[in-house]
Protein backbone atom coordinates (compact mmCIF):
# COMPACT_ATOMS: atom_id res chain seq x y z
CA UNK A 1 0.00 0.00 0.00
CA UNK A 2 1.27 3.48 -0.77
CA UNK A 3 1.92 5.62 2.24
CA UNK A 4 0.83 9.21 1.84
CA UNK A 5 3.14 11.87 3.19
CA UNK A 6 1.72 14.74 5.13
CA UNK A 7 3.64 17.92 5.65
CA UNK A 8 2.46 20.21 8.37
CA UNK A 9 3.73 23.74 8.36
CA UNK A 10 2.43 27.29 8.71
CA UNK A 11 -0.54 27.48 6.37
CA UNK A 12 -0.62 29.08 2.99
CA UNK A 13 -3.78 30.75 1.83
CA UNK A 14 -5.04 28.62 -0.97
CA UNK A 15 -3.65 25.93 -3.17
CA UNK A 16 -5.20 23.50 -5.56
CA UNK A 17 -4.32 20.59 -3.32
CA UNK A 18 -7.22 21.85 -1.21
CA UNK A 19 -9.64 20.83 -3.94
CA UNK A 20 -8.01 17.44 -4.20
CA UNK A 21 -8.34 17.04 -0.49
CA UNK A 22 -12.04 17.82 -0.54
CA UNK A 23 -12.43 15.13 -3.14
CA UNK A 24 -10.58 12.69 -0.91
CA UNK A 25 -12.95 13.49 1.90
CA UNK A 26 -16.09 13.18 -0.23
CA UNK A 27 -17.41 10.37 1.95
CA UNK A 28 -17.33 12.65 4.95
CA UNK A 29 -19.23 15.22 2.90
CA UNK A 30 -21.83 12.59 2.28
CA UNK A 31 -22.00 11.62 5.95
CA UNK A 32 -22.40 15.20 7.16
CA UNK A 33 -25.24 15.78 4.72
CA UNK A 34 -26.81 12.49 5.66
CA UNK A 35 -26.53 13.33 9.34
CA UNK A 36 -28.15 16.73 8.91
CA UNK A 37 -31.04 15.32 6.91
CA UNK A 38 -31.51 12.45 9.30
CA UNK A 39 -31.40 14.49 12.45
CA UNK A 40 -33.31 17.53 11.34
CA UNK A 41 -36.82 16.17 11.46
CA UNK A 42 -36.34 13.86 14.43
CA UNK A 43 -39.08 14.26 16.99
CA UNK A 44 -41.30 16.20 14.63
CA UNK A 45 -44.78 15.02 13.81
CA UNK A 46 -44.87 15.74 10.10
CA UNK A 47 -41.15 15.40 9.41
CA UNK A 48 -39.96 16.12 5.95
CA UNK A 49 -43.27 17.75 5.02
CA UNK A 50 -41.88 20.88 6.63
CA UNK A 51 -39.70 21.35 3.58
CA UNK A 52 -42.89 21.69 1.55
CA UNK A 53 -45.02 23.48 4.14
CA UNK A 54 -42.82 26.48 4.59
CA UNK A 55 -42.75 27.74 1.02
CA UNK A 56 -46.33 26.61 0.45
CA UNK A 57 -47.85 28.56 3.34
CA UNK A 58 -45.69 31.58 2.52
CA UNK A 59 -46.99 31.37 -1.02
CA UNK A 60 -50.60 31.30 0.16
CA UNK A 61 -50.11 34.29 2.45
CA UNK A 62 -48.26 36.28 -0.19
CA UNK A 63 -50.89 35.46 -2.78
CA UNK A 64 -53.67 36.73 -0.53
CA UNK A 65 -51.93 39.96 0.45
CA UNK A 66 -49.63 40.92 -2.39
CA UNK A 67 -51.41 39.29 -5.29
CA UNK A 68 -55.00 39.64 -4.12
CA UNK A 69 -55.20 42.81 -2.02
CA UNK A 70 -52.25 44.83 -3.31
CA UNK A 71 -52.60 43.56 -6.87
CA UNK A 72 -48.89 43.44 -7.55
CA UNK A 73 -48.24 42.68 -11.19
CA UNK A 74 -47.02 39.22 -11.99
CA UNK A 75 -46.05 39.54 -15.64
CA UNK A 76 -49.28 38.00 -16.82
CA UNK A 77 -49.05 34.64 -15.08
CA UNK A 78 -51.19 33.66 -12.07
CA UNK A 79 -49.71 35.17 -8.94
CA UNK A 80 -49.42 31.91 -6.93
CA UNK A 81 -47.17 30.21 -9.43
CA UNK A 82 -45.29 33.45 -10.02
CA UNK A 83 -44.46 33.96 -6.36
CA UNK A 84 -43.83 30.28 -5.70
CA UNK A 85 -41.12 30.11 -8.34
CA UNK A 86 -39.43 33.07 -6.69
CA UNK A 87 -39.87 31.70 -3.19
CA UNK A 88 -38.44 28.34 -4.12
CA UNK A 89 -35.12 29.79 -5.15
CA UNK A 90 -35.16 32.43 -2.50
CA UNK A 91 -35.70 30.01 0.35
CA UNK A 92 -32.97 27.78 -0.94
CA UNK A 93 -30.61 30.74 -0.93
CA UNK A 94 -31.63 32.33 2.36
CA UNK A 95 -31.91 29.02 4.21
CA UNK A 96 -28.48 27.98 3.04
CA UNK A 97 -27.11 31.34 4.04
CA UNK A 98 -28.36 31.29 7.59
CA UNK A 99 -27.34 27.68 8.13
CA UNK A 100 -23.84 28.00 6.72
CA UNK A 101 -23.15 31.13 8.69
CA UNK A 102 -23.66 29.09 11.82
CA UNK A 103 -22.15 25.79 10.71
CA UNK A 104 -18.69 26.26 12.17
CA UNK A 105 -20.08 27.07 15.58
CA UNK A 106 -22.60 24.27 15.49
CA UNK A 107 -19.79 21.83 14.78
CA UNK A 108 -17.26 23.35 17.10
CA UNK A 109 -16.85 20.14 19.09
CA UNK A 110 -15.66 18.35 15.99
CA UNK A 111 -13.53 21.18 14.67
CA UNK A 112 -11.46 21.41 17.80
CA UNK A 113 -10.84 17.68 17.94
CA UNK A 114 -10.43 16.27 14.46
CA UNK A 115 -8.85 17.40 11.25
CA UNK A 116 -10.72 17.42 7.95
CA UNK A 117 -10.95 20.08 5.26
CA UNK A 118 -13.16 22.65 6.93
CA UNK A 119 -14.77 23.63 3.66
CA UNK A 120 -16.72 20.40 3.78
CA UNK A 121 -19.02 21.67 6.51
CA UNK A 122 -20.51 24.68 4.70
CA UNK A 123 -20.72 22.76 1.45
CA UNK A 124 -22.64 19.93 3.06
CA UNK A 125 -25.04 22.44 4.59
CA UNK A 126 -25.85 23.90 1.20
CA UNK A 127 -26.36 20.42 -0.22
CA UNK A 128 -28.86 19.73 2.56
CA UNK A 129 -30.77 22.83 1.59
CA UNK A 130 -30.62 21.81 -2.02
CA UNK A 131 -32.39 18.59 -1.17
CA UNK A 132 -35.12 20.61 0.54
CA UNK A 133 -35.37 22.60 -2.64
CA UNK A 134 -35.86 19.41 -4.60
CA UNK A 135 -38.67 18.30 -2.33
CA UNK A 136 -40.41 21.68 -2.36
CA UNK A 137 -40.25 21.91 -6.13
CA UNK A 138 -42.72 19.02 -6.36
CA UNK A 139 -45.36 21.62 -5.55
CA UNK A 140 -44.16 23.75 -8.42
CA UNK A 141 -44.48 20.85 -10.81
CA UNK A 142 -47.99 20.30 -9.54
CA UNK A 143 -48.87 23.93 -10.01
CA UNK A 144 -47.48 23.94 -13.53
CA UNK A 145 -49.76 21.06 -14.39
CA UNK A 146 -52.68 22.77 -12.71
CA UNK A 147 -52.22 26.08 -14.52
CA UNK A 148 -51.15 24.38 -17.72
CA UNK A 149 -47.62 25.66 -18.12
CA UNK A 150 -44.98 23.66 -19.89
CA UNK A 151 -41.36 24.72 -19.53
CA UNK A 152 -39.56 25.82 -22.66
CA UNK A 153 -36.86 23.53 -23.90
CA UNK A 154 -34.29 26.22 -23.21
CA UNK A 155 -35.71 26.36 -19.71
CA UNK A 156 -34.74 22.79 -19.01
CA UNK A 157 -31.21 23.59 -20.11
CA UNK A 158 -30.83 26.76 -18.17
CA UNK A 159 -32.35 25.46 -14.96
CA UNK A 160 -29.24 23.52 -13.92
CA UNK A 161 -27.16 26.62 -14.58
CA UNK A 162 -29.46 28.69 -12.38
CA UNK A 163 -29.15 26.12 -9.64
CA UNK A 164 -25.38 26.19 -9.90
CA UNK A 165 -25.46 29.97 -9.57
CA UNK A 166 -27.69 29.79 -6.51
CA UNK A 167 -25.50 27.09 -5.05
CA UNK A 168 -22.31 29.05 -5.59
CA UNK A 169 -23.83 32.29 -4.35
CA UNK A 170 -24.94 30.68 -1.10
CA UNK A 171 -21.61 28.92 -0.63
CA UNK A 172 -19.71 32.13 -1.32
CA UNK A 173 -21.68 34.44 0.91
CA UNK A 174 -22.12 31.65 3.46
CA UNK A 175 -18.38 31.12 3.75
CA UNK A 176 -17.87 34.81 4.24
CA UNK A 177 -20.47 34.95 7.01
CA UNK A 178 -19.21 31.75 8.61
CA UNK A 179 -15.71 33.13 8.90
CA UNK A 180 -16.86 36.37 10.46
CA UNK A 181 -19.16 34.51 12.79
CA UNK A 182 -16.28 32.55 14.26
CA UNK A 183 -14.80 35.75 15.60
CA UNK A 184 -17.76 38.09 15.87
CA UNK A 185 -21.03 36.50 16.90
CA UNK A 186 -22.86 39.61 15.75
CA UNK A 187 -23.66 37.73 12.58
CA UNK A 188 -26.23 35.74 14.48
CA UNK A 189 -28.24 38.88 15.18
CA UNK A 190 -27.59 40.80 12.02
CA UNK A 191 -28.32 38.03 9.55
CA UNK A 192 -32.09 37.52 9.87
CA UNK A 193 -32.54 41.24 9.44
CA UNK A 194 -30.12 41.34 6.52
CA UNK A 195 -31.90 38.45 4.81
CA UNK A 196 -35.22 40.21 5.15
CA UNK A 197 -33.89 43.39 3.56
CA UNK A 198 -32.28 41.35 0.83
CA UNK A 199 -35.57 39.70 0.03
CA UNK A 200 -37.17 43.03 -0.69
CA UNK A 201 -34.45 44.06 -3.12
CA UNK A 202 -34.78 40.71 -4.86
CA UNK A 203 -37.78 40.28 -7.15
CA UNK A 204 -39.45 37.54 -5.14
CA UNK A 205 -42.86 39.10 -4.64
CA UNK A 206 -42.77 41.54 -7.54
CA UNK A 207 -41.55 41.28 -11.13
CA UNK A 208 -38.04 42.47 -11.91
CA UNK A 209 -39.36 44.81 -14.57
CA UNK A 210 -40.31 47.27 -11.84
CA UNK A 211 -36.80 48.74 -11.80
CA UNK A 212 -37.01 49.62 -15.48
CA UNK A 213 -33.72 50.49 -17.10
CA UNK A 214 -31.83 50.28 -13.81
CA UNK A 215 -32.52 46.60 -13.46
CA UNK A 216 -28.92 45.79 -14.37
CA UNK A 217 -27.81 47.31 -11.04
CA UNK A 218 -30.13 44.94 -9.26
CA UNK A 219 -28.63 42.19 -11.35
CA UNK A 220 -25.44 42.47 -9.33
CA UNK A 221 -27.49 40.61 -6.76
CA UNK A 222 -27.14 37.16 -8.29
CA UNK A 223 -30.49 36.02 -6.97
CA UNK A 224 -32.27 38.59 -9.09
CA UNK A 225 -30.92 37.13 -12.32
CA UNK A 226 -31.68 33.64 -11.11
CA UNK A 227 -35.27 34.29 -10.16
CA UNK A 228 -36.11 36.33 -13.21
CA UNK A 229 -34.55 33.81 -15.56
CA UNK A 230 -36.28 30.93 -13.81
CA UNK A 231 -39.63 32.61 -14.37
CA UNK A 232 -38.79 33.38 -17.97
CA UNK A 233 -37.70 29.82 -18.62
CA UNK A 234 -40.47 28.00 -16.77
CA UNK A 235 -43.43 30.32 -17.17
CA UNK A 236 -42.48 32.45 -20.14
CA UNK A 237 -43.03 35.70 -18.27
CA UNK A 238 -40.40 37.56 -20.25
CA UNK A 239 -37.82 36.81 -22.86
CA UNK A 240 -34.81 35.13 -21.37
CA UNK A 241 -32.17 37.79 -20.85
CA UNK A 242 -28.79 36.14 -21.38
CA UNK A 243 -26.91 39.24 -20.34
CA UNK A 244 -28.62 39.12 -16.99
CA UNK A 245 -27.65 35.48 -16.52
CA UNK A 246 -24.10 36.35 -17.43
CA UNK A 247 -23.91 39.22 -14.93
CA UNK A 248 -25.29 36.93 -12.25
CA UNK A 249 -22.76 34.31 -13.09
CA UNK A 250 -19.83 36.70 -12.91
CA UNK A 251 -21.08 38.32 -9.69
CA UNK A 252 -21.51 34.90 -8.14
CA UNK A 253 -18.08 33.83 -9.18
CA UNK A 254 -16.50 36.87 -7.58
CA UNK A 255 -18.62 36.34 -4.49
CA UNK A 256 -17.44 32.78 -4.22
CA UNK A 257 -13.76 33.57 -4.66
CA UNK A 258 -14.10 36.23 -2.02
CA UNK A 259 -15.90 33.83 0.32
CA UNK A 260 -13.26 31.15 -0.10
CA UNK A 261 -10.50 33.68 0.41
CA UNK A 262 -12.01 34.93 3.67
CA UNK A 263 -12.68 31.43 4.85
CA UNK A 264 -9.17 30.17 4.15
CA UNK A 265 -7.74 33.23 5.80
CA UNK A 266 -9.60 32.69 9.05
CA UNK A 267 -9.52 28.91 8.90
CA UNK A 268 -6.04 28.98 10.37
CA UNK A 269 -7.23 30.10 13.73
CA UNK A 270 -10.74 28.63 13.83
CA UNK A 271 -9.76 25.98 16.32
CA UNK A 272 -7.97 28.51 18.51
CA UNK A 273 -10.69 31.09 18.94
CA UNK A 274 -13.99 29.40 18.23
Amino acid sequence: METPTTIIKPKKLFSFSDLKEIWEYRELLYFFTWRDLKVRYKQTAIGVLWAVFQPFITMVVFTVFFGGLLKISSDGVPYPIFVYTGLLFWQFFSGALSDTSNVMIANQAIITKVYFPRLILPISTVITKFIDFGIASIILVGMMFYYGYAPRLVGLFILPLLLVITFMASVGLGLFLASINVKYRDVRYALPFFIQILMFVTPVIYPAGIAGKYSWILALNPMMGVIQSARAALLGTTVLNWLLVFISLVATFILMLFGIYMFKKTERYFADII
Binding site: P4, T5, T6, I8, K9, T112, V114, Y115, R268
Partner: peptide, 16 residues
Amino acid sequence: SQITPPTTGEIKIHGR
Protein backbone atom coordinates in the same frame (compact mmCIF):
# COMPACT_ATOMS: atom_id res chain seq x y z
CA SER B 1 -3.29 16.18 14.17
CA GLN B 2 -3.55 19.31 12.00
CA ILE B 3 -6.26 20.92 14.04
CA THR B 4 -4.25 24.06 14.43
CA PRO B 5 -1.25 25.01 12.31
CA PRO B 6 2.17 25.70 13.82
CA THR B 7 3.59 29.22 13.75
CA THR B 8 7.06 28.04 12.83
CA GLY B 9 8.72 24.85 11.69
CA GLU B 10 7.66 21.80 9.79
CA ILE B 11 6.48 18.28 10.44
CA LYS B 12 6.82 15.44 7.98
CA ILE B 13 4.62 12.43 8.48
CA HIS B 14 4.85 9.35 6.29
CA GLY B 15 1.62 7.47 6.55
CA ARG B 16 -1.99 7.88 7.51
